[in-house]
């Protein structure tokens, strides 16, 4: 049995096995399944990525909140006898920032910014403004 091509999902579709899917030609159920499954997989992985992004940006917001350390504002304790606790805390914030950004580049590094070796080697990039 053949059915009419489904209405394209709103937004971006990442994957399609057959050029037929775009051509407007009818798809059989098997083809339709093959078309839908990877889309769902991609949708799920996109959802996961969104969650990761959300968590990362929450962590950044949290670090900015911790940066406002009202709790050590008037504390004159000298850690190891020479390091004011407020200074030590903020040095810790700097280290935490490095750790956080390390996690960010591991977890939510943008996928769509890098160019392939071929594109870079061909020198096709950046020609537009030079013309």
């Amino acid at each position: 049995m053949t059915i009419k091509n489904p209405a394209p999902p709103r937004g971006r579709v990442f994957f399609c096995y057959k050029p037929q899917a775009l051509s407007g030609a009818p798809l059989c159920e098997l083809q339709l399944a093959a078309y839908r499954v990877p889309y769902d997989v991609e949708k799920r992985s996109s959802g996961k990525r969104m969650m990761k992004k959300l968590c990362m940006w929450c962590c950044v917001a949290l670090l900015l909140i911790f940066h406002q350390d009202n709790w050590f504002w008037t504390d004159g304790t000298l850690v190891f006898g020479f390091l004011p606790i407020g200074l030590l805390y903020h040095a810790g914030i700097s280290l935490a920032a490095a750790g956080l950004w390390f996690t960010a580049i591991c977890v939510i590094w943008p996928k769509d910014v890098e160019y392939s070796e071929n594109e870079l080697a061909e020198g096709s990039l950046g020609k537009e403004a030079e013309l």
Partner: peptide, 13 residues
């Protein structure tokens, strides 16, 4: 528009 889709996909939107 995204520069390179994860699986080299197509824009159907």
């Amino acid at each position: 528009s995204t520069i390179s889709h994860p699986e080299g996909g197509l824009q159907m939107g």
